[in-house]
Amino acid sequence: MKRRQMLIGSGTMFATALVGYSSVSFAHDNEEEDAKSVQKKRDSTNHEEKEKDEEEYEGIPGFDREEFDLDSDVIQVKYLAFQKGTLELGVSVETTDQDVLEEELRALVPAFNQAIREADADEFFDAVEEFKFALYDECDNLRATLYLDVEWLRECLFGDLTTEEFVNRILMILGVVGDDDGPDTNQTT
């Protein structure tokens, strides 16, 4: 009788050891599968974000993204998007010199004018309700977010506002220059 119990006990231990080994093996396989699954999800997410960015660039009504070209060595476009009536422009600036910043911000106006003129100005101004402008430093730290008056772009496009006046208004909101053009009509966040 003891011999049967010993054989059954040994068999049970052997079976338990096999199950334990296979569980470890399955766990290791599952970890590899989980890692592959996570990587696939990341790749899929990155691909979807890239497609979304491309759709946002193409999705600005009355605006030709290919014609929006900044002529600047100091300012670079981080993003340009249009969502729910808001045109969002984020630029990265590689200077802290006020005079250089002022000079380089002037490149925004001709870039916008060209992109709007090459498309459809009426469609652009009908669709865009607000203009959100974000300024980042060279380390990608957000330095300022401004809501600019869309009418300023219209005035620049049709010659009622000079490039210098447009830039001075931005700098005035940033607090870089004094108020030369009257009261401030916009807010910063």
Results as ranks from 00 to 15, higher is better:
residue 99 D to N: 11
residue 108 L to V: 00
residue 104 E to F: 09
residue 81 A to M: 06
residue 82 F to P: 02
residue 135 L to Y: 07
residue 188 T to P: 07
residue 117 R to H: 14
residue 175 G to D: 00
residue 40 K to A: 15
residue 80 L to Y: 02
residue 159 G to N: 01
residue 94 E to F: 09
residue 29 D to L: 15
residue 49 E to Q: 12
residue 76 Q to P: 06
residue 145 T to S: 04
residue 130 E to A: 08
residue 117 R to N: 13
residue 79 Y to N: 02
residue 115 A to W: 06
residue 129 E to V: 12
residue 108 L to T: 05
residue 171 L to G: 08
residue 168 N to G: 11
residue 122 D to Q: 12
residue 63 F to S: 03
residue 147 Y to C: 04
residue 122 D to M: 08
residue 116 I to K: 00
residue 23 S to L: 15
residue 159 G to C: 01
residue 94 E to T: 08
residue 96 T to K: 09
residue 87 L to E: 05
residue 103 E to R: 09
residue 107 A to P: 02
residue 131 F to N: 00
residue 99 D to E: 07
residue 59 G to H: 05
residue 115 A to Y: 06
residue 29 D to S: 15
residue 165 E to F: 01
residue 103 E to Q: 11
residue 59 G to T: 09
residue 72 S to E: 12
residue 71 D to H: 06
residue 180 D to Y: 11
residue 37 S to K: 10
residue 96 T to H: 06
residue 55 E to K: 04
residue 43 D to A: 13
residue 168 N to Q: 13
residue 144 A to F: 03
residue 124 F to G: 03
residue 77 V to Y: 01
residue 165 E to K: 01
residue 35 A to H: 14
residue 179 D to W: 01
residue 139 C to S: 09
residue 95 T to N: 05
residue 52 K to D: 07
residue 102 E to H: 10
residue 4 R to E: 12
residue 44 S to V: 03
residue 63 F to D: 02
residue 89 L to S: 03
residue 93 V to G: 06
residue 137 D to Y: 03
residue 56 E to H: 11
residue 37 S to F: 15
residue 173 I to F: 04
residue 128 V to S: 05
residue 148 L to E: 13
residue 83 Q to H: 12
residue 111 A to N: 00
residue 79 Y to G: 00
residue 152 W to S: 09
residue 8 I to T: 12
residue 51 E to M: 09
residue 147 Y to G: 05
residue 152 W to Q: 04
residue 20 G to L: 15
residue 158 F to Y: 06
residue 104 E to G: 06
residue 101 L to C: 08
residue 43 D to M: 14
residue 156 C to D: 04
residue 88 E to P: 05
residue 129 E to R: 07
residue 54 E to Y: 10
residue 55 E to L: 00
residue 78 K to V: 00
residue 43 D to E: 13
residue 27 A to V: 15
